[in-house]
């Protein structure tokens, strides 16, 4: 199975990278794009009996390493 973990900064955390991207787009004349937030995507193969087991495992590794829940939130997609 293939798992994708999407990690993004919590809404209340300032994202200067997102702001810098937004400023660059404004410089390119894209004035209708606002509130850019940059996150990250981590994908992996996982061996598991079923989707539930895979999800449980991915949740565990996300909490223990992939995301820092002090500043980030995440969502998991398994296919």
């Amino acid at each position: 199975m293939r798992a994708i973990v999407y990690i993004r900064l919590k809404a209340e955390v300032l994202d200067p990278q997102g702001q810098a991207i937004e400023n660059a787009l404004k410089n390119l004349g894209e004035n209708n794009i606002n509130n850019i937030r940059q996150g990250k995507l981590i994908e992996m193969d996982i061996e598991a009996k079923n989707k539930d087991e895979a999800e449980e495992k991915i949740e565990k590794i996300t909490k223990s390493l992939l995301a820092n829940t002090v500043i980030e939130e995440y969502s998991i997609e398994i296919s």
Binding site: V13, N68, V70
Partner: peptide, 17 residues
Amino acid sequence: LTERKLLPGSLLKNSSL
């Protein structure tokens, strides 16, 4: 130490980047 949760909070990118 913050990543290990031995100290509270976290250190983000400088606001000026």
